[in-house]
Structure formats: structure tokens, C-alpha cells
Design a protein around this nucleic acid. Structure first.
Lengths: 208, 208
DNA sequence: AAAAATAATTGACTGCGGTCATTTTTTTAT
DNA sequence: ATAAAAAAATGACCGCAGTCAATTATTTTT
């Protein structure tokens, strides 16, 4: 029932995140001080810390919110009857789109979640597990359609494709793959992983 | 000919790195101040910065030195005629061994090199390229032996295996894979990637 | 409506990473 | 050996992330 407070809390939280997006994107994460961020958001410095634990938590929260949104959107829009590759492309490219729009945020978020310290690792493990489980139905369907071997554990399958995503993103960050070529690179990697790396002569059929 | 100076420089550099290894390993990176590090190394705080540009540079330097050492050692010891999988296992497990011995260092180094900011990306790209090229001969040989398809670019092949390494390491950091199971997990991932992810019935031969 | 209780806000303060003018050490020149 | 020049070491100092006791705003109680 506490109307004024609740509304203010939500509003201020949004203000801080918006200010952070603006400043971090414009000047970079390190070049933006919390004091300046607070000023931009129209509040005192200390207040920032009653909404977020640390400077990096601002980044983390923003990215988790975005990911949640992306995934909900995808869960609604994905057609589970299209090919495995199509579905993975849609998913990965949606995440990549978010990443390329918020490069600085994405970089810091990935640094923290892909290589977490002891303190965060449980939380990250949970996020990762939830993410993998989100994809399990897609892989099961693909197995049923005969697109994937049945004798592989779902976790391993998920791992293989997640590995490709990590690779793509890493190559994008270090400049090996420009933004415009990411889709094609992902497509190639997915094709190769789905098709397998075997020599052509050991494989029963090949369209090339 | 400047004997005293040159020797001192090398010695002090070593002292700083040793102190860093001791303190970072014992108390963690964030919990170790440069002032304390300098005390441990028996020098003044400012002196640290005439040997290393930033706190993270200490980590970076240590890891690059170690990697250089590991790779030289491997280049000498690897038998280019054993199977692709055996060679990759030896390489990856050697790097993983270094990583698991210096977890804190490794984490920070990977964060910086896998997801570099604009400022570092050229340097990291060069490191990554050198690393990939180191592996190219192994893949060429494997292609010649018929272990890998000939129609794939070397860079893509390198990418696939590098992706697996990233995955393994990430899972290790977030606790999904305990240290003792890393070898087996890597083995499984390599097998699956080398064998391909195809359904068994589409493949000409299979031992299971 | 006033008082008491509770929650939110704030900026002065602390500690650390990194800088730089000054001092100390080493080398070169005389 | 002494002075001048060059290199290295140093700690006081700066800016910023994060803390906390004091203050202000909101809610509940009477």
C-alpha cells in the first residue's frame, strides 16, 4: 500500500540505470564516476548505493534485465518446429544484437559471468543452468527430428553451442570479426558443428 | 655494461612478481594493496609503477611469461605424429594446469584477453593470432592423416577447439566442473567435436 | 493532527590505485 | 677522487569507489 515510496523506488532505480546507460555509453565505464552518475540521475551519491551494491552491479542488473526480456520475447516468438540451426541463430543473434548495442556493458557482464570469482560463482552457475535448461526443449525436439544424435547428454549439446557463442563474442571483442560479419560467422560455425568435423569420406551423405 | 643496474632491475622485477604471486594467491587480488605488495617486495610503492604500468599489468605479465614458457616447452615435447586428440589434450591440459595453480591470476588474465576493451584489443588480437598459428601445423597434419575434413579453413578449425577450451574453463570457474574432472570433460568434448554431432544413423560407421 | 517509528537520502570520510616532483643512487666526465 | 649527468626510488598527493552517522521524508500510531 505504500504508494509514494514504492513508486519512487522504481522510478529512481530506472533513473539510475538510464543515467548509467547514457554515461557509460558516452564516456566509458571507468571514465564515469559514481558522483557524476548520481548528479546525472539527480540524486546524492550515497543513494546510488542503496539501489545497487557496487558500480559493477549496475551493469550486472541492467544486463540481467535485458537478458530476461530478450529470452521472454524469444520464448514467445520462436517457432519450435523450424530447424535447430534457425532457432539457435535467432536466439544467438538476438543476444548478440543486445551486446553490440551495449558493448561496454556487455563486456563487463561477460567478464564477470564467464569467469566469475569464488564469491559470484554460485549465482552465475544458477544463471547458466537456467539458461541451459531454457534451451533443452529445443535440443530434445531436434533429437526427435533426427537433427542431433540421441546418445549425447543435453548438457553437452548445450555446451557445444554455448562454446560457439563464447568464441564468436570473443572474436568480436578483439576485432577479429566485425559487427557486420557476425551473423555469417555464427552461421558457418553452427553449420560446421551441426554437420560435424569429420572428413567427408567417412560420412554417409553430403550435399557438397 | 651497466652491471649493477641491469641486475637490480631484473632482480626487482622478479621480487615484485614473486610478492604478487604470494599475496594474490593468499589474500586475493582485490584484497592486496599495492602498498602492501611493495612492502612485501621490500621497495617503495612508486617503484612498483616503474616496473609495471598498472596493478593488472602485473597479472598480465606473469601470465604471458608463463604461457610463453608452457608453449615453448610443449613445442619441444609434442610428438606431431600422435593423434590430433592426444596433442590437443596435452596442450589444453598443460594450460589448464597452469590455470588451476594460479586461479586468481588466470581469471583476471582471461577476463582481459577474452573480452578485451578497445584499448587492449589489438594487442590481444596479436596474441590470439600467434596462438592460433602455433596450432596450425597440428591441424594440417591431422588433415593430411584424414582426421579432419580438408574443406575447412584452419582458422575455423582452431576456433572450434579454442571454443571448447573457453567452455571448459568457464565451467570450471563457476563450479560446474571440479578440477579433478576437467581432464575427462575436455576429453569428452574433444571426442564429440572431432567425431561430430551428427545422428548416429546418418554416419557410415560407429563403434557404439 | 501531532507524535512516534520507520525508511530513504545524503555528503563528509576512508582506503586504495595511480601520478609526480623531489631525493637518492649509479654512471660518466674531468 | 670529484663534479656533473643520468637513472631509479620514493612517498606525499589526487581522484574515485564504497561506507556510515546524521538528516530528511514517509508511514503508522494515538
Amino acid at each position: 500500500m505504500s504508494s509514494i515510496r514504492e513508486k519512487n523506488k522504481i522510478t529512481k532505480r530506472r533513473c539510475i540505470l538510464d543515467a548509467a546507460i547514457r554515461l557509460f555509453s558516452k564516456k566509458g565505464y571507468d571514465q564515469t564516476s559514481i558522483e557524476e552518475l548520481a548528479r546525472e540521475a539527480g540524486i546524492g551519491k550515497g543513494t546510488v548505493y542503496s539501489y545497487f551494491q557496487t558500480k559493477k552491479d549496475i551493469v550486472r542488473t541492467f544486463c540481467e534485465d535485458e537478458l530476461e526480456f530478450i529470452r521472454e520475447e524469444l520464448a514467445a516468438n520462436t517457432n519450435p518446429d523450424t530447424s535447430l540451426k534457425d532457432q539457435l541463430m535467432i536466439l544467438f543473434m538476438a543476444e548478440f544484437k543486445h551486446l553490440s548495442r551495449n558493448k561496454e556493458f556487455g563486456r563487463l557482464y561477460l567478464q564477470e559471468t564467464v569467469f566469475p570469482d569464488e564469491h559470484h560463482s554460485e549465482k552465475d552457475l544458477e544463471m547458466q543452468s537456467r539458461y541451459f535448461e531454457l534451451l533443452f526443449p529445443i535440443y530434445v525436439k531436434a533429437q526427435e527430428r533426427g537433427e542431433l544424435r540421441q546418445d549425447l547428454e543435453l548438457l553437452h549439446i548445450a555446451g557445444h553451442f554455448y562454446a560457439l557463442y563464447l568464441l564468436l563474442v570473443s572474436c568480436w571483442f578483439n576485432g577479429m570479426i566485425p559487427t557486420g560479419e557476425a551473423r555469417e560467422a555464427m552461421s558457418t560455425l553452427l553449420d560446421q558443428t551441426i554437420e560435424g568435423l569429420k572428413p567427408a569420406e567417412q560420412t554417409g551423405e553430403h550435399d557438397e
